[in-house]
Design a protein around this nucleic acid. Structure first.
Lengths: 141, 141
DNA sequence: TATTGTTATACTCTATAACTATA
DNA sequence: TATAGTTATAGAGTATAACAATA
């Protein structure tokens, strides 16, 4: 740990707050909480059941009911009953939801890109590679 | 962006979730929410007023009242009136609060260290240095 | 009987506005 | 008048337990 280096744990902790704060701020610009933004994020390429949503967001199914209620009331998502199993309900994003999530993601990407713009291209590649290694390894364990 | 590289924004986003989830989990192991853990973290080296606490945690002062109420009820922090200005109240951590925050920090550090243990020592230094550069530059702007 | 989703309930967290007590 | 902190109120988010409908 050289001069002006925070140590890897402190540095990653502070970086995680920087990234999460940016995400929360861009979501809030569209009156979305972090969990509402994550809900829309998850629905970008899926139409999961309420139960699957609980697994994806790691929340109790009763929490999902309220979460989807509020998003549906705002016209961002839509419930549709399954035909195969009449107990099951699928959740899909509406065009309005897609428009919002696209804007939030774009602003977030621009913001994080700006935050890393002080690094040289080589350093940016290094950081990307190392961060990828850590998350990939973690997911595997 | 080489093969199996997530791209810097995606990699940093996923890494930030990994780190924040770890912090939340270790806090929850002691029945602490993330914001309660941050409150204790901030009090490690300060005895701020309620007002200063609102600034440090970026919350409304009315939110601080409830936050400190709940922490005080659990014996983790203590209010004490200022003698200079009788409107002002300082907040300090109790020994019980210190014990908990010490455990949470230790478990978090161990967890993040383990998550980065797959990198070589040189790579760990690189990651630490690059993350530090990003957060330092961001704070300055 | 087991599973899916909702409801009832309770608690934490948050902000806005109004209030009390100091300064 | 201005500031520090609390209270009243409202709403989001969360979990547990009980429930209804369906399998």
């Amino acid at each position: 740990m050289t001069q002006n280096d925070l140590g890897i744990v402190d540095a990653l902790a502070q970086l995680s707050f920087l990234v999460q704060d940016a995400l929360a701020a861009h979501a809030a610009a569209h009156q979305l909480s972090l969990i509402q933004a994550r809900l829309l994020g998850v629905l970008r390429d899926r139409e999961p059941t309420m139960n699957e949503l609980a697994g994806l967001l790691e929340l109790d199914k009763s929490s999902i009911t309220g979460l989807v209620d509020r998003a549906e009331k705002r016209g961002l998502v839509q419930r549709s009953p399954s035909i195969q199993d009449r107990r099951v309900i699928h959740v899909a994003m509406t065009p309005a939801g897609r428009r919002i999530v696209r804007k939030v993601v774009a602003a977030f990407v621009a913001d994080i890109s700006a935050a890393t713009a002080g690094l040289s291209p080589a350093q940016q590649r290094q950081l990307s590679t190392l961060a990828t290694k850590v998350v990939t390894r973690h997911r595997r364990d």
